[in-house]
């Protein structure tokens, strides 16, 4: 199974440029069609399952608007 991940978008930084949407290897990002941020942009959001937490969206994001998480195995005694 591929690793599970998710992103959080700090909406007010996002300018809806869609660079992350084009760069996402899983194709699971899109601009929120009905939501606007404080500056009037449609912010990006995760639209379906499949995010692996690879972080490419954050690497290309010009606004440092994306926080990326990934699930990892944790061993405890």
């Amino acid at each position: 199974m591929p690793p599970q991940g998710r992103i959080e978008v700090r909406d007010n930084y996002c300018k809806g440029c869609e660079i992350c949407v084009a760069a996402c290897p899983q194709g699971v990002l899109a601009l929120a069609p009905e939501r606007l941020n404080i500056k009037g942009y449609h912010p990006v959001e995760l639209i379906e399952q499949g995010c692996t937490g690879c972080g490419i969206c954050a690497i290309v994001c010009p606004e440092a608007a994306i926080i990326v998480y990934r699930e990892v195995k944790s061993r405890s005694q």
């Binding site: 599970q4 991940g5 998710r6 700090r10 007010n12 930084y13 500056k39 937490g53 972080g55 954050a58 690497i59 606004e63 440092a64 608007a65 994306i66 926080i67 990326v68 998480y69 990934r70 699930e71 990892v72 195995k73 944790s74 061993r75 405890s76 005694q77």
Partner: peptide, 23 residues
Amino acid sequence: MENVTMEEQLVYDRPESMASVQT
């Protein structure tokens, strides 16, 4: 006995040296 669980890890966040303002 060893338990294997899934735990969420932060991969990327906004750097501290960037001010909290929109450009």
